[in-house]
């Protein structure tokens, strides 16, 4: 199998404008088969718009995209049976029961009655909804709704699954469960493209693209991104973070400074030599602070790449 054949999604220069606003700005993507591909970005960074274009729901203003070997949006109709889409908002019918929702969608996908029933049973079991079968979707909890939406999106066994901020209305425990399910799907061969604004979720993905103001500002494996981060990360442990903050404010080479309880996290230019020494220079001796260089995490990556964008 050639490398290009394994790419489920390819896009070149994908752009979408809404009036004068450029929601998505020349995005090039390559999403390999059976991977969990993350879209990380703040609200309004163009994640949803990109997903909608890849589904054929929106026409690109510029550029092109191939999904499962089909041109979108021209051949988007051919994608319908092969793609699953879980929208950001819960978009199932609240006045229908769990079973009725799935049964309806099964009929829309033309699944044969017997296959439909058994498939629904399997999914209800798998996503722990079997005891909610007759409950109206509108009365489910956040986590249950989300699992139902996932069941609906994979009902017709799509090759490619789009998840648009699937966990935004869900508690941490359900979120962990949910990611287990995602990896189970990927293991079975489904390619998953998932947008999120949670760092710890993004870190779980096989591959990650960071979007900011519609531009793709970085992509690669989370590890790669963290290794390649164009900054040195320094952590300061102190009893008086406020005072330390003030003292560091004018330091040359400082990219960002964030407080985490009694710790301060500094991002410094790579060019800054001997960062620990440099930082200690800035601080009063009596500050009682311990300074050390630490491994960058994804949030650091995010801060650095989106900072470049602004300047």
């Amino acid at each position: 199998m050639s490398e290009s054949a394994e790419q489920v999604i390819r896009s070149q220069g994908l752009t979408r404008r809404f009036g004068s606003l450029v929601a998505v700005d020349h995005v090039d993507l390559e999403v390999p088969k059976a991977s969990v591909y993350g879209f990380l970005g703040p609200n309004g960074s163009g994640k949803t718009t990109t997903i909608r274009m890849l589904c054929g729901l929106l026409e690109p203003s510029e550029g092109k995209a191939q999904v499962l070997g089909l041109e979108v949006p021209k051949e988007a109709e051919g994608l319908r049976r092969r793609v699953g889409y879980m929208t950001q908002r819960f978009s199932l019918f609240e006045d229908l029961s769990v079973f009725e929702n799935l049964d309806f969608l099964g009929e829309i996908h033309s699944l044969k009655a017997s296959h439909r029933r058994s498939r629904i049973d399997t999914l209800l079991e798998r996503y722990r909804l079997a005891d909610r079968r007759k409950q109206r979707a509108g009365t489910l909890s956040g986590g249950q709704k989300q699992r139902l939406a996932l069941a609906a999106a994979v009902l017709h066994e799509p090759e490619l699954l789009f998840l648009d901020e699937p966990t935004s209305a869900v508690d941490p425990e359900n979120r962990r469960d949910f990611w287990e399910s995602i990896f189970q799907l990927a293991d079975e061969g489904t390619t998953v493209l998932c947008s999120t604004h949670y760092m710890e979720e993004a870190e779980r993905c096989h591959l990650l693209a960071i979007l900011d103001h519609g531009k793709l500002v970085a992509n690669g494996t989370p590890q790669q991104l963290m290794d390649d981060v164009d900054a040195t990360v320094v952590e300061i442990q102190t009893e008086d973070p406020r005072r330390v903050r003030e003292q560091l404010a004018g330091m040359t080479g400082l990219l960002s400074l964030a407080q985490l309880g009694n710790r301060l996290r500094l991002l410094l230019h790579r060019e800054v030599e001997n960062p620990v020494w440099q930082v200690e220079e800035e601080l009063d001796i009596d500050a009682g602070a311990t300074v050390q260089v630490v491994r960058p995490n994804l949030e650091d990556v995010f801060v650095v790449v989106t900072r470049d964008e602004v300047s």
Partner: peptide
């Protein structure tokens, strides 16, 4: 309005 149209138009309907 309820968002279900977005879901429906991604189906073969």
């Amino acid at each position: 309005e309820r968002g279900s149209l977005e879901l429906l138009i991604t189906t073969p309907m």
